[in-house]
Write a protein that binds this DNA or RNA. Structure first.
Lengths: 155, 155
DNA sequence: TCTAAGCAGTTGATACATCATCTACAGGAG
DNA sequence: CTCCTGTAGATGATGTATCAACTGCTTAGA
């Protein structure tokens, strides 16, 4: 651990700190809006959005976890909480007795239908509307490149 | 709530999802590396970095909270945990009996000095090295513009 | 000087994420 | 059929974030 560390240059540091802070502040703000206006957490929102995109609003824990890139344990705990609030129900799986399905309820559909428009408006008002199309393309390009690298570079 | 919602275009959606996923994946990975290689959480890291940047490694809860943009409650809980592990100590304040200082310990300095180089290398390897200087400038520009707007647009 | 406003930090409750461990079942090799 | 390995998901412990009170101290203002 000699002095061979390539510390960040001032520009790199500024970019990195700005990016980190953006995540924290924007994510925090959007999350709080979601929670206070629609009474769902960002995690609830992700689950509900995904379930409305899937036949019969019904999917195996496993597949849901893969789609959201969550750990199975997180999924299990989170679905238990959401089921407690009536947004989804757990359903046994006939074909594989180990497995189970998560199914969105009417209350879950109502919640997501109420939350989504507000959330999208917030994403626009707080983010998209302040970024030009060209900048947005750069951002997409960066995100996808870095994500691709993360995928390769070990799980 | 009529059908006047301006949903995201496919490009916008791709950009937004990529950005959100980048946060989650990159943040998660860097956090886990920090934790497993250096035994400090990202939050610990932020506190320690800030304290090494300040005279005598010593600052009021309040000022620390402002600098990191944390709530005072979070600060209080977190410092209590860090103090439990010997990374910082709490110190009463003579001038204002309500207040208190957070002071970094030798163990805290040792921890951050061990963690920082690895963390910087990880930030480079997983992010900076995959982004061109021009892209980095765009990212900085976007971040700062959006953050500025968040500041104005209410607390 | 007394009081009311409000600031600094704490505390307890609740929700969330991760980890290690555990149970039950599935599917293949012998 | 009987193991044996692996998979699906559950569970409990720990650490973390947020919210809503709450305590004790300060300070401005009547």
């Amino acid at each position: 651990m000699a002095d061979t560390v390539r510390w960040l240059t001032p520009e790199e540091q500024r970019a990195w700190r700005g990016f980190v802070r953006l995540q924290e502040r924007l994510g925090g703000r959007l999350g709080r809006l979601l929670q206070s206006e629609s009474n769902v957490s960002p995690a609830d929102f992700a689950v509900l959005v995904h379930l409305t995109d899937v036949p019969e609003g019904r999917q195996r824990y496993q597949d849901l976890a893969r789609a959201l890139e969550w750990e199975k344990s997180r999924m299990s705990h989170h679905i238990a909480r959401m089921a407690g609030r009536g947004l989804v129900v757990r359903e046994e799986c006939a074909e594989d007795a180990r497995g189970a399905f998560v199914v969105i309820t009417d209350a879950g559909r109502a919640a997501i239908e109420a939350a989504a428009p507000r959330h999208v408006e917030a994403v626009r008002a707080l983010f998209i509307d302040h970024v030009t199309p060209a900048e947005l393309r750069v951002l997409t390009e960066i995100s996808e490149r870095v994500l691709r690298n993360l995928d390769e570079e070990a799980g």
